[in-house]
Design a protein around this nucleic acid. Structure first.
Length: 184
DNA sequence: CTCGGGATTGAG
DNA sequence: TCAATCCCGAGC
């Protein structure tokens, strides 16, 4: 079942946890690659210094201020694409970064990290502003396994040491003991 | 230790 | 138009 647009119209913290266990689906030609989301991070609002939206609306981050359920894909460090899904109501800038997925069919895909998964699934900036709630995107999200609260670990987010008081927020979530989580 | 890789951004 | 920025592996 596709996750509906309303699923994303909640706080990033809620969506980040609810996305664990969901299926991230990618169609390339006639092939459909199925993966399960195992690690996410929440970027919530204008005050979160780790978020691209913390300095206001710019051409790059404009999609974060728009409708929930759209992808925010950006290129960084001169080499990496990052896949996010916009959350919350319109005009509230927030998103969830998908950090790692578990491949279901092609077990040798390297998807244990935000840059690795976009490379493995051939995700680039053309997906920016595409909807996660439509198969027309050729990249969509379906409901999946229900993950128990006791299986969800909260941790500090990765690579945001510049974010002041926000760098220690436990806004990274992953499935306990899952081998495809990017770090321990 | 320094540099490169690149899009993004704000300053000049 | 330019310089700073983000991270980190390669090269000195």
């Amino acid at each position: 079942m596709l996750q509906k647009k309303e699923f994303y119209n909640q706080s990033a913290l809620k969506v980040a946890q609810d996305l664990l266990g969901c299926f991230l689906m990618r169609r390339i030609g006639n092939e459909i690659i199925r993966t399960k989301i195992v690690e996410t991070e929440a970027y919530e609002g204008l005050r979160d210094l780790a978020s691209h939206a913390s300095r206001g609306k710019t051409p790059r981050n404009a999609v974060m201020f728009g409708e929930p359920g759209l992808y925010y894909v950006y290129f960084t460090y001169g080499m990496h694409h990052m896949l996010n899904v916009v959350t919350g109501p319109k005009d509230h800038p927030a998103a969830v970064l998908i950090r790692a997925v578990e491949p279901i069919d092609e077990l040798d895909l390297k998807t244990n990290g935000p840059a690795r998964l976009t490379k493995a699934l051939q995700i680039d900036k053309k997906f920016n502003e595409f909807p996660a709630f439509s198969k027309k995107s050729e990249l969509w999200i379906e409901s999946g396994e229900k993950i128990k609260k006791s299986e969800i670990i909260s941790a500090k987010r990765i690579g945001i040491d510049y974010a002041g008081e926000y760098k220690d927020k436990l806004w990274r979530f992953y499935i306990k003991d899952n081998k495809f989580v990017s770090k321990k």
